[in-house]
Amino acid sequence: MRRSFLTPALWIPAGLAIALLGLPLVALIVRAPWAQLPELLSRSEVLQALGLSLGTASIATVVSLALGIPLALVLARSADWPAVPRRLLRALVTVPLVLPPVVGGVALLLLLGRRGLIGQFLPFQIPFSTTAVVIAQVFVAMPFLVLAVESAVRASDRRFETAAATLGATRWTILRRVTLPLVAPGVSAGALLCFTRALGEFGATITFAGSFPGVTQTLPIATYLELQRDPDAAIALSLTLMVVSVAVLVTLRDRWVPGLTS
């Protein structure tokens, strides 16, 4: 048994923090129109928005893993770079976290829109497509994954990679069989954060991808629009979003982590 040195005084601010995070959700649950909930949630447009959200957030997470893990590795190894490019790269990764998502959406339009820097040369149109939803989600959510994986890589012991090299492993084998398995808990935590952030993405999506039922209207957008007409229905939809996020966080966490932390 390890002795805990937690002083009881810490419970006061910690309790306030729990209240601040938890009570709004309690209010949401208390005020939810439980009676009309089954009807609301079986509406085809709600199911369509939920399906679109789950689908796009999953694809965005896969894309973030494919692009974000390499970026995290580069970032973790940038310690021996000159200060300026190193700090620029770090700032670049952090910007989507602090940028209002709507501004991020405008920036994506200016890049990939019909008259955008790159978009004007593309033979197809990205805005108002499901692809645009995924791009917006990746833009906003990938930094969560990158930062989680990067800190895991930094915290891991690089001498295991050295040991692997003396055993004849090439860099690729080392990455696949040593580096990545060692940071797997960080990767799964980052992927979960990324997925839930993508699931809740609103501002960049509605700005860059617009809102069209079944194509770009994700659950957060449907919720926001419903708030304009029927706040009760909007509460029900936010509740759905919350339940889905919590369910994903709880179930996946238990499934992914054992065996990697022992």
Partner: peptide, 20 residues
Amino acid sequence: SVDTYEQDVRAVLTKIELGE
């Protein structure tokens, strides 16, 4: 033949101003 239903009038204007 609508491509997007925006959340408010300003959002519609933004899309028009940007030529999207």
